[in-house]
Design a protein around this nucleic acid. Structure first.
Lengths: 189, 189
DNA sequence: GACACTATGTTGGTTTCACAACAAACAGTT
DNA sequence: AACTGTTTGTTGTGAAACCAACATAGTGTC
């Protein structure tokens, strides 16, 4: 998107500022985090901060934007290549949500921007709807039903199963979800 | 020692250069590590490197000097306060050598400067000799005997014990060493 | 309301770094 | 021995970050 060529110093500065904000968010909400604090943790001069962002909230916005971009890139480059596309796609999403990004997402949602989780799931859902329609030639309504199931409900349930050790790998989780979906789709048709 | 006031940029630059060299030393010896490689790993411009150090070897020298300084500081600030000074001192040394510094020391010795381990142990030994003389009023010869035992022999033995799970903590290790020393000292007297 | 204290933006002058470009030395190939 | 590629130092210019200082605004505290 924003393809400005950043030199190393700019890249480093923004990187540590973002890292520091995320670190501070583990302690308290964004509203009680000051620019000064962020700079002290990042070991960056405060005036340098203002050369990059107008305030904390702009910094947060960039973090969120990059996470959304990251998710999009992750989904687009997930190789849905062989016969098992449906499982691959589900695995890919589950991988994403169960990776370090997961804790990062919920952190932002709870401490900074209560609409962020929704933004993320919107991106994931629209991606899935399109793919279910393409792969299995489902109609929009069915695809949406499946996508909502996986993202809103399925992931939570599967995370519970995984926490309890009932399933081990994303692949196994995806297979269970697929079975559920197939039954659901049959019952609709 | 060198109390130049470094601003943040200098500190960061030198820090990543040092880290990168240590990282590369895990792969290959210093003689086959190029300035270019170090800079690429550190994400620092090569000309910036030369603004700080004439070559790789100067960078290594600074790393070594700082480790020696670090050890001296560590020993001097080890609080030998109560009745158990002997154990405290041994614990302190064992802590140091079994910490992350240990792998760092052997790495430097094997891949870069074969005299480095000796330099480090010299510092540690002369510190111990002085302390045994001060604390227990031992003569120089006895103190040197004890110090050599702990540093040259003891640490290796205790590390073996620890690896095999025969002892758990530096404190426990130190107590075993102290028992051995007491027997040794008695037999000398 | 007067007080001290801290965070916020903003500015101008200075230091440090990035970058590209260069010549030179070296190693490996054919 | 000529060729190709890589590492090495070095340089000048412009960009980025540092720092100190300032005025302003918010936040208690007496």
């Amino acid at each position: 998107m924003t393809s400005e060529k950043l030199d190393r110093r700019k890249k480093y500065t923004r990187m540590v500022l973002k890292d520091s904000l995320m670190q501070l968010l583990k302690e308290k909400p964004l509203s009680s985090i000051t620019v000064k604090e962020i700079c002290e943790m990042a070991d960056i001069n405060r005036s340098t901060f203002y050369a990059h962002y107008p305030d904390q909230y702009a910094l947060l916005t960039q973090i969120e934007d990059e996470l959304i971009e990251d998710l999009k890139h992750y989904l687009n480059t997930a190789n849905l290549h062989e016969e098992d596309e449906a499982i691959d796609m589900t695995v890919s999403l589950l991988d994403y949500f169960s990776s370090k990004h997961e804790e990062c997402l919920t952190l932002l949602n709870e401490r900074a921007d209560s609409t962020f989780q929704q933004k993320v799931t919107n991106v994931a859902e629209s991606f899935m709807i399109k793919n279910w329609m393409d792969i299995y030639d489902f109609d929009q309504e069915t695809s949406k039903y499946i996508s909502t199931f996986i993202i809103s409900g399925g992931i939570q349930v599967i995370k519970m199963w995984m926490a309890k050790g009932m399933v081990q790998s994303p692949k196994e989780m995806a297979r269970l979800i697929n079975d559920l979906i197939n039954k659901g789709v049959e019952s609709i048709r």
